[in-house]
Structure formats: structure tokens, C-alpha cells
Amino acid sequence: MKRFEFIQPTSLDEALAAWEPGAAWLGGGTNLVDLMKTGAMQPVKVIDITRLPGLAEIETLAEGGVRIGALVRNSDLANDADIASRFPMVSEALLAGASGQLRNAATVGGNLMQRTRCAYFQDPQAACNRRDPGAGCDAREAGAGQAVLGWSEICIATNPSDFCVPLAALDAIVEVRGPDGAREIPMAEFHLLPGDTPERETALSPGELIVALRLPPEAEGFAANARYLKVRDRTSYAFAMTSAAAALRIENGRIAEARLALGAVAATPWRVTEAEALLAGQTPDAALFARAAEAALAGATPSGDNAWKIDLARRTAIRALEMAAAGTPAQMPALPASPFGSTAGDLAHA
């Protein structure tokens, strides 16, 4: 690990003043410290923000919705009974991520800032335009397909966050403080597609710091029919191959409003408003969900040897919609949203 200056400010103003180019904010450290070890990140200054006051609260807002401090730990948010009942897929997504230990350390703000898990990004010996603009993309050259949506020839990385997928679906708002004061960034604008500038991953300006996250009042309307589904190649402690957050507001047997976002398919959580529009006003059934999923993946193209992933993402979206239509389980948070999350019962010979 490269040597760095370590400071531990005790006020937000002090922290913001301490920022300089090459500095990094340190929250739970689960991603930053790891990348400092591989050498993918080499901050000259590490600013430990965990001592900043007032950033670790979860508050219900008078106008509805909830405000979650940037330093709330993932496990505390996931296990908050109020969050689980009002925004069940947020809990479900958080608990599908990482491990109990990592969730105890990782913060809400850090989860939003999580870097891609592309092996070539993590490895400083590899060419990576995201880490080192203009260096090239070894992942693309190797044919190791990753994203299937929104990627460019410059970068094919995906965003690994589970948490961000329901946040995108629920129109979360990111509250930011920086040298120029406070501002808010809608989730849909927070993460950036690579285009020609993959090094620009978020809408944050240099020196800006996430202080909180808001889930708007409307997000509560989906509590009865909201699921996060994560497909992975071992049952737990693995990043998603594909994932989907599906939320339906069902009135009189019809979908009054739908939200759908996909994970692990693009450099950003992938909200699919086209599919949502297609679902709105309809009676939920298998054919409808298939059409919606088709629309969700309409623009998908493989970035390497991963055409199968488009198919898997489509199937994941369908299943997530089916699960949402079937209703949020009584016990939340449910077991991680694997199709095998519930105990398998007796055999039925077909």
C-alpha cells in the first residue's frame, strides 16, 4: 500500500476543508482499503469521515419518505424494522450483498461509491481506462464480457452494488455537501455510463461528499409488492451475475404503477422506464412480464463472450416481477433472494 496522510476530522466543515486532489473519503473501508491494497487506488490522503457527527441517523420525514445518513452501516439499515416494512426491497438487496461482517462495516454512502469489481480495474498491471484514462481496456480485449447495456468500447465494467438497484427503482435522492455548498442528485443521474470518460463514475464533483440518501414518499407505495432478486453462481457471498428490483403498486388487480431496475448489467444500476410504462395499467400475468422484460433488454448487446447474460437478465427481470406480483413475504427481510431461499419441500413427480 502506498503511504498516505491520515486525518480524522470531527466536523463536516473540517472534513470538506481537508479535501485536496488525490484525497479519498474513508467510510467503512471495505472497498477503499481493498483497492489500496491491490494498488488500484492510491490516495495521498485518507480522510476518515466516520467521526463526523449526525451522519448515521435514519429519520422518517414529516412529508413522508425517509432520510438515511451516509454513515449508516449497511446492516443497520437492512435490519431496521421500519425500513424493512416500508421499503422491503431495500432491505432485501442489502442482505443479498457481501457478508455479515462486510455489511457491519460498509456504509450507505460507501455503497453508492462502490467501484466496479472488474478484475482488470482492480489489477494495476492491467490496462484500464477507468483507472487510468487512455490506457486501454484489457477486459474488452480479453473478450471477458461484463456489461450488456450502456457500455462503450472504452469500458465494459458493471456496477456491483445490490443496494443501488432498488434505490434506482425507487427514485432515491442523494444529498451531497461540497466546497460549494449542498446539492441533491437524483439517483438516476448519480452514476454515469462510461462513454468516453469512464473515469467519471458519478455526478459528484471533486471534494463533494455524500451526506445522506432520501427515499421519497412515493417509494412507500410499493411495500406490498416489491422484491429484489439476485442470481449468482454460489448461494451467498458472491457478486450478482444479474439482479433485478421489481416493485408494483397494484390497485384492484391492475398495476397502477411499476418500477423495474436491473443490476450487474451496466456501469450504473439500470432503470428501465420503458418496461415500467408497458406494465402500467395492465393486469399482471406471465405474458405481460415477458413483454416487459423483453423491452427492458431491448438494447442489450454482449460486450464479449456474454450473450447468455442478456438472456439471464431477461429471465431475472421476469422472475422478479412474478415475485413482486406474488407479494412481499411476511417475514422481511426474507432470506437472500435466491430462488432457493426457502426450504425446498417434498418432491412432486410431474
Partner: peptide, 15 residues
């Protein structure tokens, strides 16, 4: 009182 991975925890943060 909470389980964490000590490998990803900088000692300096633990005062």
C-alpha cells in the same frame, strides 16, 4: 461488539 473483517479495517480509525 460487531463482527467485522479486521483485514479491511485501518487500525488508525479505531481510537
Amino acid at each position: 461488539g460487531r463482527r467485522v473483517n479486521s483485514c479491511l479495517t485501518l487500525a488508525a480509525t479505531l481510537d
